[in-house]
Design a protein around this nucleic acid. Structure first.
Lengths: 131, 131, 131, 131
DNA sequence: GTGGTCTAGACCACA
DNA sequence: GTGGTCTAGACCACG
């Protein structure tokens, strides 16, 4: 049951479809969702999570666009066997642009490089450790 | 001239007020903006950047709420002399929640922990090196 | 009035959003729609064409994704000043895959290469000639 | 073995029955399938390609309607000895309607008339050259 | 006033 | 039974 580990925060300012995308990606990184594995149908997952079909559909479509999923008209969605593309220059640039303001604020709040790397290490460990 | 180092991307999907907040915070981290320093008036900055006054106002207001600025009726906005609060548990939690999906995607794209820490280190260096 | 030259066939088996995409692209090729030009808002065009806002939105979003448009939250959609990317190998491959079955049928129906090239020339001329 | 040259892409967004139709037509254009030649039974082709019988049946039925095949209760399907009808005005109109959006996009992507005619020529040559 | 998001419900093509 | 498409109507963020 995939919906067991997905938690939507309805009061968040992160859109529901975005939360869903993030948690599916986290599930893949944790290998709770394996390449080739079938995901619930849009209607099924929507019903399990108490959200609308179209919201799930939007998340699935975007994940397909980004190479994480394959969507087949009849068989539904499966985790892409090949995974998303390997990081390229553009992706690394994008990730840096996301990190910069986050780190700027952290450093003003006296979180130094060692602290932050500790957090990063913990997340990497946690992602690898759920299998 | 503060507006010299602020660059708004009008075609970004990050709201302008959010870009402005981020760049002001980056400016503080780089110590281009020093504690106690006076910021341009809402009207002036808006005009320099070619954006709406309301947008600058919103950014200033939120930065004040978060402890980065102080706004006085007469003197305008100044960089908070004490800086924002030191990171507490809630803040560290929040930062971790932001990092998790980002790192999950990165790891699926074969960016390993060393790569990512390299990027983090580079950003810390860059923030410290502009003074 | 952009909607003057757009004609939706409601009984077609080509989806409405796809017809809309195609006609907007044709409009750009004919230079009826110029780089930087503002398109009608999704609600306005939807109302003009007698279709739903979301259908127009889907067409706009996909055209943005493909580099034909830029969408700004407040200013609406404009024709991308730089245009879509120049044809690359992948695009030429795709176009060939679309042409092959079409040409196979045509040749069985005794449309020879000269006939077909005549049609192609006519379309090129027509696209260039509406300015 | 007809199924030797038919390749179904299960992850395509072109329906399987449509892919099948197209490849059979291409086979006829290449004269791999000759007028009067008997096609595999629905059951046999479905099994060879690993697809549903209904899907093959749909493709055969539509090809019959369009004049490419004849279906006899006993003998099964044969390639129409007379071929499909010669192109008439309506058909030429239809082909033009299919080409226009394709060419419009190509021209925006800086594929000029010569480039495109080169592709058309190549496909004609390839269709004629497989006999 | 603009697009972004979400919900609801419907019909259809596909296999 | 699956996703694809379309409609309708609503609230919100943004500037």
């Amino acid at each position: 049951m995939i919906s067991l580990f997905i938690q939507i925060q309805f009061d968040s300012d992160t859109p529901i479809y975005e939360q869903l995308k993030q948690q599916l990606i986290i599930g893949m990184a944790q290998q709770r969702l394996l390449p080739g594995e079938r995901l619930p149908s849009v209607r099924e997952l929507a019903s399990d999570l108490g959200i609308n079909m179209h919201t799930v559909n939007k998340a699935y479509k975007q994940l397909e666009e980004e190479g994480f999923l394959q969507i087949h008209r009849q068989r539904g969605a499966i985790v892409s066997p090949k995974g998303p593309g390997k990081a390229d220059e553009a992706y690394l640039k994008k990730i840096e642009e996301k990190l910069r303001p986050l780190i700027a604020e952290a450093s003003l709040r006296q979180v130094d490089q060692e602290n932050l790397e500790g957090i990063v290490r913990r997340i990497y460990r946690e992602l690898g450790g759920e299998r």
